[in-house]
Design a protein around this nucleic acid. Sequence first.
RNA 1: GCCAGGGUGGGGUAGACGGUUAUCCUAAGGGACUGUGGAUCCCUCGACCCGGGUUCGAAUCUCGGCCCUGGCCCCA
Length: 410
Amino acid sequence: MLQKPRGTRDFLPDEMERRRLIEQRMREAARRWGYREVCTPDFEHLELFTMKSGEGIIQEMYTFEDKGGRQMTLRPEVTAAVLRMYVNEGKVLPKPIRWCYIADCFRYERPQKGRYRQFWQFGVELIGADTASADAEVIMLARDVIGSSGATFDLRVGHLAPMKHLLSALSQEDQRAIMACLDKRDQGALEASLDEKDLGHLSEPLAALSECQTVAEVFEIAGDVPERARIEETFALLDAQGIDYQPDFGIARGLDYYTGMVFEGFARNLGAENQIVGGGAYRLAHLFGGDDVASCGFAIGFDRVMVSIGEFPLDPGTVVGVVSTPEARERALEVARAFRGAGVRTEVNLMQRGMGAQIAHAAKTADFAVVLGKREVDAGTVTLRDLHSGEQRECGLEEAIAEVARYGDR
RNA sequence: GCCAGGGUGGGGUAGACGGUUAUCCUAAGGGACUGUGGAUCCCUCGACCCGGGUUCGAAUCUCGGCCCUGGCCCCA
Protein backbone atom coordinates (compact mmCIF):
# COMPACT_ATOMS: atom_id res chain seq x y z
CA MET A 1 0.00 0.00 0.00
CA LEU A 2 1.21 3.44 -0.94
CA GLN A 3 1.84 5.68 2.03
CA LYS A 4 1.77 9.42 2.27
CA PRO A 5 5.18 11.07 2.57
CA ARG A 6 6.69 11.20 6.01
CA GLY A 7 5.62 14.14 8.12
CA THR A 8 2.59 14.95 5.95
CA ARG A 9 -1.07 14.52 6.85
CA ASP A 10 -4.38 13.82 5.19
CA PHE A 11 -7.32 15.82 6.43
CA LEU A 12 -10.78 14.27 6.44
CA PRO A 13 -13.83 16.55 6.03
CA ASP A 14 -14.45 17.05 9.77
CA GLU A 15 -10.91 18.19 10.41
CA MET A 16 -10.79 20.24 7.25
CA GLU A 17 -13.95 22.05 8.32
CA ARG A 18 -12.40 22.86 11.69
CA ARG A 19 -9.24 24.13 10.05
CA ARG A 20 -11.15 26.33 7.61
CA LEU A 21 -13.25 27.74 10.42
CA ILE A 22 -10.21 28.70 12.48
CA GLU A 23 -8.39 30.07 9.44
CA GLN A 24 -11.39 32.23 8.69
CA ARG A 25 -11.51 33.57 12.24
CA MET A 26 -7.82 34.47 12.03
CA ARG A 27 -8.24 36.22 8.68
CA GLU A 28 -11.21 38.11 10.06
CA ALA A 29 -9.26 39.17 13.16
CA ALA A 30 -6.44 40.50 10.96
CA ARG A 31 -8.87 42.17 8.58
CA ARG A 32 -10.32 44.18 11.43
CA TRP A 33 -6.86 45.68 11.99
CA GLY A 34 -6.54 46.53 8.31
CA TYR A 35 -4.32 43.61 7.31
CA ARG A 36 -5.20 42.28 3.85
CA GLU A 37 -4.32 38.84 2.64
CA VAL A 38 -1.54 38.21 0.16
CA CYS A 39 -0.24 35.04 -1.48
CA THR A 40 3.24 34.21 -2.74
CA PRO A 41 4.49 31.16 -4.69
CA ASP A 42 4.78 27.79 -3.00
CA PHE A 43 8.33 27.58 -4.34
CA GLU A 44 11.01 30.20 -4.75
CA HIS A 45 14.62 30.51 -5.82
CA LEU A 46 16.75 28.81 -3.20
CA GLU A 47 18.79 32.01 -3.00
CA LEU A 48 15.90 33.91 -1.40
CA PHE A 49 16.19 31.85 1.75
CA THR A 50 19.95 31.40 1.84
CA MET A 51 20.30 35.19 1.57
CA LYS A 52 18.08 35.56 4.60
CA SER A 53 19.21 32.67 6.74
CA GLY A 54 22.52 31.38 5.39
CA GLU A 55 23.63 28.26 3.55
CA GLY A 56 23.17 26.10 6.60
CA ILE A 57 19.44 25.87 6.14
CA ILE A 58 19.70 24.07 2.81
CA GLN A 59 19.79 20.71 4.52
CA GLU A 60 16.49 21.56 6.24
CA MET A 61 14.70 22.47 3.02
CA TYR A 62 12.98 20.70 0.16
CA THR A 63 15.26 21.92 -2.61
CA PHE A 64 15.24 20.83 -6.21
CA GLU A 65 16.59 21.75 -9.59
CA ASP A 66 13.92 22.61 -12.12
CA LYS A 67 14.03 21.58 -15.76
CA GLY A 68 15.80 24.81 -16.61
CA GLY A 69 18.61 24.00 -14.18
CA ARG A 70 17.52 26.59 -11.61
CA GLN A 71 18.02 25.89 -7.91
CA MET A 72 14.57 26.06 -6.34
CA THR A 73 13.02 25.21 -2.98
CA LEU A 74 9.62 24.77 -1.44
CA ARG A 75 9.25 27.72 0.93
CA PRO A 76 10.33 26.95 4.50
CA GLU A 77 8.67 30.16 5.74
CA VAL A 78 6.81 33.09 4.29
CA THR A 79 8.42 36.31 5.54
CA ALA A 80 11.25 36.29 3.02
CA ALA A 81 8.82 35.79 0.14
CA VAL A 82 6.52 38.57 1.32
CA LEU A 83 9.46 40.96 1.59
CA ARG A 84 10.62 39.90 -1.87
CA MET A 85 7.14 40.69 -3.09
CA TYR A 86 7.32 44.06 -1.38
CA VAL A 87 10.58 44.82 -3.17
CA ASN A 88 9.17 43.60 -6.50
CA GLU A 89 5.84 45.39 -6.42
CA GLY A 90 5.06 46.98 -3.09
CA LYS A 91 7.50 49.90 -2.95
CA VAL A 92 5.12 52.46 -4.31
CA LEU A 93 2.21 51.52 -2.06
CA PRO A 94 1.32 54.01 0.68
CA LYS A 95 3.00 53.18 3.99
CA PRO A 96 2.49 51.53 6.29
CA ILE A 97 1.73 48.34 4.41
CA ARG A 98 -0.37 45.83 6.36
CA TRP A 99 -0.38 42.32 4.92
CA CYS A 100 -1.32 38.90 6.26
CA TYR A 101 -1.13 35.39 4.88
CA ILE A 102 -1.89 31.78 5.63
CA ALA A 103 0.32 29.41 3.72
CA ASP A 104 1.80 25.96 3.87
CA CYS A 105 5.55 25.67 4.37
CA PHE A 106 7.96 22.78 4.03
CA ARG A 107 10.92 21.78 6.15
CA TYR A 108 12.88 18.58 6.02
CA GLU A 109 12.99 17.83 9.73
CA ARG A 110 12.24 14.94 12.02
CA PRO A 111 8.50 14.96 12.75
CA GLN A 112 7.25 15.10 16.32
CA LYS A 113 4.26 16.45 18.21
CA GLY A 114 3.22 19.70 16.55
CA ARG A 115 5.98 19.47 13.97
CA TYR A 116 5.36 18.27 10.45
CA ARG A 117 7.26 18.44 7.18
CA GLN A 118 4.35 20.27 5.59
CA PHE A 119 2.82 22.74 7.99
CA TRP A 120 0.80 25.93 7.88
CA GLN A 121 1.69 29.38 9.13
CA PHE A 122 -0.59 32.34 9.65
CA GLY A 123 1.43 35.51 9.69
CA VAL A 124 1.42 39.25 9.21
CA GLU A 125 4.01 41.74 7.99
CA LEU A 126 3.79 45.42 8.80
CA ILE A 127 6.15 47.27 6.47
CA GLY A 128 7.31 50.85 6.65
CA ALA A 129 6.40 51.89 10.19
CA ASP A 130 9.44 52.22 12.46
CA THR A 131 7.70 53.19 15.68
CA ALA A 132 6.78 51.90 19.11
CA SER A 133 3.17 52.01 17.97
CA ALA A 134 4.01 49.61 15.15
CA ASP A 135 5.77 47.21 17.53
CA ALA A 136 2.82 47.32 19.91
CA GLU A 137 0.26 46.86 17.15
CA VAL A 138 1.88 43.69 15.93
CA ILE A 139 1.97 42.22 19.44
CA MET A 140 -1.65 43.14 20.13
CA LEU A 141 -2.68 41.76 16.75
CA ALA A 142 -0.94 38.46 17.50
CA ARG A 143 -2.98 38.24 20.70
CA ASP A 144 -6.17 38.97 18.80
CA VAL A 145 -5.50 36.47 16.04
CA ILE A 146 -4.56 33.62 18.37
CA GLY A 147 -7.37 34.58 20.71
CA SER A 148 -9.85 34.29 17.85
CA SER A 149 -9.00 30.59 17.62
CA GLY A 150 -9.77 30.01 21.28
CA ALA A 151 -6.18 29.00 22.08
CA THR A 152 -4.55 30.35 25.23
CA PHE A 153 -0.86 31.04 25.51
CA ASP A 154 1.82 32.82 27.48
CA LEU A 155 3.24 35.89 25.79
CA ARG A 156 6.80 37.07 26.32
CA VAL A 157 8.02 40.38 24.93
CA GLY A 158 11.58 41.64 24.78
CA HIS A 159 14.00 43.75 22.83
CA LEU A 160 17.41 42.89 21.46
CA ALA A 161 19.10 46.22 22.23
CA PRO A 162 19.97 45.71 25.93
CA MET A 163 21.56 42.34 25.27
CA LYS A 164 23.42 43.59 22.21
CA HIS A 165 24.63 46.53 24.26
CA LEU A 166 26.12 44.20 26.86
CA LEU A 167 27.81 42.27 24.07
CA SER A 168 28.84 45.33 22.06
CA ALA A 169 32.56 44.86 22.61
CA LEU A 170 32.43 41.40 21.07
CA SER A 171 32.91 40.49 17.44
CA GLN A 172 29.80 39.70 15.39
CA GLU A 173 30.73 36.05 15.49
CA ASP A 174 31.13 35.94 19.26
CA GLN A 175 27.89 37.84 19.73
CA ARG A 176 26.13 35.30 17.62
CA ALA A 177 27.57 32.38 19.59
CA ILE A 178 26.63 33.91 22.93
CA MET A 179 23.14 34.79 21.76
CA ALA A 180 22.64 31.24 20.53
CA CYS A 181 23.31 29.99 24.06
CA LEU A 182 20.96 32.60 25.52
CA ASP A 183 18.26 31.68 23.02
CA LYS A 184 18.48 28.06 24.10
CA ARG A 185 18.63 29.14 27.75
CA ASP A 186 21.56 26.80 28.10
CA GLN A 187 23.33 28.20 31.16
CA GLY A 188 26.11 25.60 31.02
CA ALA A 189 27.02 26.29 27.42
CA LEU A 190 26.79 30.02 28.11
CA GLU A 191 29.27 29.90 31.00
CA ALA A 192 31.64 27.74 28.99
CA SER A 193 31.43 30.04 26.00
CA LEU A 194 32.03 33.15 28.13
CA ASP A 195 34.94 31.62 30.04
CA GLU A 196 36.53 30.54 26.82
CA LYS A 197 36.48 34.11 25.53
CA ASP A 198 37.58 35.44 28.91
CA LEU A 199 34.25 37.21 29.38
CA GLY A 200 33.27 35.75 32.72
CA HIS A 201 32.23 39.19 33.96
CA LEU A 202 29.29 39.16 31.53
CA SER A 203 27.77 36.04 33.00
CA GLU A 204 26.01 37.79 35.86
CA PRO A 205 24.50 40.73 33.92
CA LEU A 206 23.29 38.45 31.13
CA ALA A 207 21.61 36.18 33.64
CA ALA A 208 20.10 39.19 35.41
CA LEU A 209 18.81 40.56 32.11
CA SER A 210 16.89 37.36 31.48
CA GLU A 211 15.40 37.57 34.96
CA CYS A 212 14.16 41.16 34.71
CA GLN A 213 10.53 41.50 35.69
CA THR A 214 10.18 45.16 34.69
CA VAL A 215 11.56 47.40 31.99
CA ALA A 216 13.17 49.70 34.56
CA GLU A 217 15.39 46.89 35.84
CA VAL A 218 16.63 46.31 32.31
CA PHE A 219 18.32 49.68 32.09
CA GLU A 220 19.87 49.35 35.53
CA ILE A 221 21.73 46.37 34.11
CA ALA A 222 22.32 47.38 30.52
CA GLY A 223 22.73 51.12 31.03
CA ASP A 224 21.11 53.90 29.11
CA VAL A 225 20.91 52.33 25.67
CA PRO A 226 19.86 54.59 22.75
CA GLU A 227 16.72 52.52 22.20
CA ARG A 228 15.53 53.15 25.75
CA ALA A 229 12.75 55.61 24.88
CA ARG A 230 11.41 53.36 22.12
CA ILE A 231 11.42 50.34 24.42
CA GLU A 232 9.70 52.19 27.25
CA GLU A 233 7.11 53.54 24.86
CA THR A 234 6.33 50.12 23.42
CA PHE A 235 5.86 48.54 26.82
CA ALA A 236 3.83 51.51 28.06
CA LEU A 237 1.45 51.09 25.15
CA LEU A 238 0.99 47.40 25.96
CA ASP A 239 0.43 48.20 29.65
CA ALA A 240 -2.07 50.92 28.83
CA GLN A 241 -4.11 48.44 26.80
CA GLY A 242 -4.03 45.89 29.58
CA ILE A 243 -2.14 43.32 27.50
CA ASP A 244 -1.15 40.28 29.53
CA TYR A 245 2.52 39.55 28.86
CA GLN A 246 5.81 38.87 30.58
CA PRO A 247 8.82 41.08 29.81
CA ASP A 248 11.67 38.84 28.69
CA PHE A 249 14.92 40.45 27.63
CA GLY A 250 16.56 37.07 27.41
CA ILE A 251 14.83 36.35 24.12
CA ALA A 252 17.57 36.15 21.51
CA ARG A 253 15.66 34.27 18.84
CA GLY A 254 19.00 33.27 17.38
CA LEU A 255 18.26 35.32 14.32
CA ASP A 256 20.50 37.72 12.56
CA TYR A 257 17.84 39.86 10.98
CA TYR A 258 15.76 40.86 13.98
CA THR A 259 16.66 44.41 14.87
CA GLY A 260 14.64 45.46 17.92
CA MET A 261 11.46 44.25 19.54
CA VAL A 262 11.03 40.48 19.68
CA PHE A 263 8.26 38.34 21.12
CA GLU A 264 7.26 34.73 21.54
CA GLY A 265 4.13 32.87 22.62
CA PHE A 266 3.88 29.42 24.14
CA ALA A 267 0.91 27.11 24.55
CA ARG A 268 0.77 25.24 27.83
CA ASN A 269 -0.73 22.02 26.57
CA LEU A 270 1.70 21.08 23.81
CA GLY A 271 4.80 18.91 24.07
CA ALA A 272 8.38 19.85 23.44
CA GLU A 273 7.32 21.96 20.46
CA ASN A 274 5.10 24.39 22.34
CA GLN A 275 5.94 27.71 20.71
CA ILE A 276 2.91 28.83 18.74
CA VAL A 277 4.00 32.28 17.67
CA GLY A 278 7.20 34.21 17.19
CA GLY A 279 7.88 37.62 15.77
CA GLY A 280 9.50 40.99 16.03
CA ALA A 281 10.98 43.96 14.21
CA TYR A 282 13.41 43.24 11.39
CA ARG A 283 15.01 44.56 8.23
CA LEU A 284 15.15 42.33 5.18
CA ALA A 285 14.11 44.26 2.09
CA HIS A 286 17.60 45.62 1.44
CA LEU A 287 18.90 42.06 1.09
CA PHE A 288 16.60 41.57 -1.88
CA GLY A 289 17.54 44.78 -3.62
CA GLY A 290 15.00 47.06 -2.00
CA ASP A 291 15.21 49.98 0.38
CA ASP A 292 16.26 49.39 3.98
CA VAL A 293 12.68 49.61 5.19
CA ALA A 294 11.80 48.78 8.78
CA SER A 295 9.34 45.91 9.15
CA CYS A 296 7.65 44.04 11.92
CA GLY A 297 5.70 40.80 11.85
CA PHE A 298 4.96 37.44 13.32
CA ALA A 299 4.22 33.89 12.26
CA ILE A 300 1.78 31.59 14.04
CA GLY A 301 2.20 27.83 13.89
CA PHE A 302 -1.30 27.09 12.67
CA ASP A 303 -1.07 23.33 13.19
CA ARG A 304 0.07 23.81 16.77
CA VAL A 305 -2.87 26.07 17.41
CA MET A 306 -5.14 23.31 16.07
CA VAL A 307 -3.48 20.71 18.30
CA SER A 308 -3.73 23.06 21.26
CA ILE A 309 -7.45 23.80 20.93
CA GLY A 310 -8.27 20.14 20.27
CA GLU A 311 -11.44 18.80 18.72
CA PHE A 312 -14.62 20.81 18.96
CA PRO A 313 -18.15 20.15 17.71
CA LEU A 314 -19.09 21.34 14.26
CA ASP A 315 -22.38 22.69 13.05
CA PRO A 316 -23.06 20.80 9.83
CA GLY A 317 -26.09 22.92 8.98
CA THR A 318 -29.40 21.50 7.90
CA VAL A 319 -29.19 18.50 5.58
CA VAL A 320 -31.95 17.23 3.33
CA GLY A 321 -31.95 13.75 1.83
CA VAL A 322 -34.17 13.29 -1.21
CA VAL A 323 -35.71 9.82 -1.26
CA SER A 324 -37.45 8.62 -4.38
CA THR A 325 -38.89 5.71 -6.29
CA PRO A 326 -37.42 4.99 -9.74
CA GLU A 327 -40.33 6.68 -11.55
CA ALA A 328 -39.77 9.89 -9.54
CA ARG A 329 -36.05 10.19 -10.23
CA GLU A 330 -36.30 13.21 -12.52
CA ARG A 331 -38.64 14.99 -10.14
CA ALA A 332 -36.14 14.26 -7.35
CA LEU A 333 -33.46 16.17 -9.24
CA GLU A 334 -35.83 19.13 -9.76
CA VAL A 335 -36.73 19.18 -6.09
CA ALA A 336 -33.09 18.90 -5.01
CA ARG A 337 -32.21 21.80 -7.27
CA ALA A 338 -34.90 23.93 -5.65
CA PHE A 339 -33.61 23.16 -2.15
CA ARG A 340 -30.04 23.93 -3.19
CA GLY A 341 -31.24 27.14 -4.75
CA ALA A 342 -32.51 28.07 -1.31
CA GLY A 343 -29.04 27.38 0.12
CA VAL A 344 -29.82 24.02 1.71
CA ARG A 345 -27.35 21.16 1.56
CA THR A 346 -29.28 18.49 -0.33
CA GLU A 347 -28.27 14.95 -1.28
CA VAL A 348 -30.13 12.67 -3.66
CA ASN A 349 -30.14 8.89 -3.71
CA LEU A 350 -27.51 7.45 -6.03
CA MET A 351 -27.74 3.81 -5.01
CA GLN A 352 -30.21 1.21 -6.17
CA ARG A 353 -31.94 1.15 -2.83
CA GLY A 354 -35.50 0.54 -1.83
CA MET A 355 -37.48 3.19 -0.02
CA GLY A 356 -36.79 1.66 3.39
CA ALA A 357 -33.05 1.56 2.87
CA GLN A 358 -33.06 5.11 1.50
CA ILE A 359 -34.86 6.42 4.56
CA ALA A 360 -32.59 4.44 6.86
CA HIS A 361 -29.60 6.03 5.19
CA ALA A 362 -31.13 9.50 5.32
CA ALA A 363 -31.87 9.06 9.01
CA LYS A 364 -28.14 8.66 9.61
CA THR A 365 -26.98 11.56 7.49
CA ALA A 366 -29.78 14.13 7.22
CA ASP A 367 -32.28 16.19 9.23
CA PHE A 368 -35.13 15.90 6.73
CA ALA A 369 -36.15 13.38 4.12
CA VAL A 370 -38.09 14.61 1.11
CA VAL A 371 -40.00 11.61 -0.15
CA LEU A 372 -41.03 11.48 -3.80
CA GLY A 373 -42.99 8.71 -5.48
CA LYS A 374 -45.71 8.32 -8.04
CA ARG A 375 -48.27 9.89 -5.71
CA GLU A 376 -46.28 13.09 -5.16
CA VAL A 377 -45.31 13.38 -8.82
CA ASP A 378 -48.94 13.12 -9.91
CA ALA A 379 -50.10 15.57 -7.27
CA GLY A 380 -47.19 17.99 -7.74
CA THR A 381 -46.37 17.79 -4.03
CA VAL A 382 -43.56 16.55 -1.81
CA THR A 383 -43.65 14.57 1.41
CA LEU A 384 -41.45 16.24 4.00
CA ARG A 385 -40.38 14.01 6.85
CA ASP A 386 -38.65 15.39 9.94
CA LEU A 387 -36.14 12.66 10.69
CA HIS A 388 -35.66 13.75 14.29
CA SER A 389 -39.32 13.72 15.30
CA GLY A 390 -40.60 11.23 12.73
CA GLU A 391 -43.45 13.54 11.79
CA GLN A 392 -44.24 13.95 8.12
CA ARG A 393 -46.72 15.69 5.90
CA GLU A 394 -47.41 16.18 2.25
CA CYS A 395 -47.26 19.74 1.00
CA GLY A 396 -46.10 22.01 -1.79
CA LEU A 397 -42.38 22.32 -2.62
CA GLU A 398 -42.13 25.98 -1.57
CA GLU A 399 -43.77 25.25 1.74
CA ALA A 400 -41.35 22.39 2.39
CA ILE A 401 -38.36 24.60 1.60
CA ALA A 402 -39.71 27.25 3.96
CA GLU A 403 -40.06 24.76 6.78
CA VAL A 404 -36.54 23.43 6.30
CA ALA A 405 -35.22 26.99 6.28
CA ARG A 406 -37.06 27.71 9.54
CA TYR A 407 -35.39 24.64 11.07
CA GLY A 408 -32.01 26.05 10.12
CA ASP A 409 -32.81 29.30 11.94
CA ARG A 410 -33.84 27.58 15.13
C1' G B 1 21.40 12.62 12.28
C1' C B 2 20.48 10.24 17.47
C1' C B 3 17.39 7.65 21.58
C1' A B 4 12.94 5.01 23.38
C1' G B 5 8.27 2.62 22.45
C1' G B 6 5.18 0.94 18.64
C1' G B 7 2.90 -1.10 13.48
C1' U B 8 -2.90 -7.25 12.86
C1' G B 9 -9.35 -5.51 7.79
C1' G B 10 -11.50 1.65 6.98
C1' G B 11 -11.45 2.55 12.84
C1' G B 12 -10.69 -0.21 17.57
C1' U B 13 -8.76 -5.06 19.02
C1' A B 14 -7.57 -10.81 20.44
C1' G B 15 -3.84 -14.09 19.19
C1' A B 16 2.96 -14.01 21.04
C1' C B 17 6.06 -21.48 24.36
C1' G B 18 6.61 -20.93 16.30
C1' G B 19 1.71 -25.37 14.48
C1' U B 20 -5.81 -26.13 11.49
C1' U B 21 -9.56 -21.85 7.84
C1' A B 22 -6.26 -15.37 12.47
C1' U B 23 -10.68 -13.50 17.22
C1' C B 24 -14.23 -10.02 18.47
C1' C B 25 -16.55 -5.06 18.14
C1' U B 26 -17.53 -1.29 14.80
C1' A B 27 -17.98 0.93 10.02
C1' A B 28 -19.33 -0.01 4.95
C1' G B 29 -22.32 -2.79 0.99
C1' G B 30 -26.45 -6.28 0.23
C1' G B 31 -30.85 -9.05 1.89
C1' A B 32 -35.28 -10.23 5.05
C1' C B 33 -38.32 -5.25 3.24
C1' U B 34 -40.39 -2.35 -4.76
C1' G B 35 -43.82 3.76 -0.45
C1' U B 36 -41.16 4.97 5.08
C1' G B 37 -36.05 4.72 10.36
C1' G B 38 -31.03 4.29 13.40
C1' A B 39 -33.67 -1.93 16.06
C1' U B 40 -33.22 -7.32 14.94
C1' C B 41 -31.57 -11.41 12.03
C1' C B 42 -28.76 -13.21 7.82
C1' C B 43 -25.05 -12.54 4.05
C1' U B 44 -20.87 -9.96 1.90
C1' C B 45 -16.46 -7.08 1.92
C1' G B 46 -11.94 -6.52 4.25
C1' A B 47 -5.78 -7.21 7.83
C1' C B 48 -0.68 -9.78 10.12
C1' C B 49 4.00 -2.57 7.31
C1' C B 50 7.98 -4.21 3.56
C1' G B 51 12.19 -7.39 2.48
C1' G B 52 15.96 -11.04 3.85
C1' G B 53 17.23 -15.04 7.52
C1' U B 54 16.30 -19.42 10.91
C1' U B 55 12.63 -23.52 10.36
C1' C B 56 9.17 -29.02 7.82
C1' G B 57 6.26 -24.62 9.21
C1' A B 58 6.83 -17.38 11.05
C1' A B 59 1.70 -12.46 12.76
C1' U B 60 4.84 -14.85 16.64
C1' C B 61 12.02 -15.74 16.68
C1' U B 62 16.06 -12.81 14.09
C1' C B 63 18.34 -8.87 10.90
C1' G B 64 17.62 -4.66 7.76
C1' G B 65 14.35 -0.97 5.86
C1' C B 66 9.83 2.06 5.92
C1' C B 67 6.24 4.50 8.74
C1' C B 68 3.84 6.20 13.46
C1' U B 69 4.22 8.28 18.64
C1' G B 70 7.19 10.84 22.12
C1' G B 71 11.99 12.90 23.22
C1' C B 72 17.23 14.83 21.71
C1' C B 73 19.52 17.94 17.94
C1' C B 74 17.66 21.83 15.06
C1' C B 75 13.99 25.39 14.77
C1' A B 76 14.42 30.69 9.52
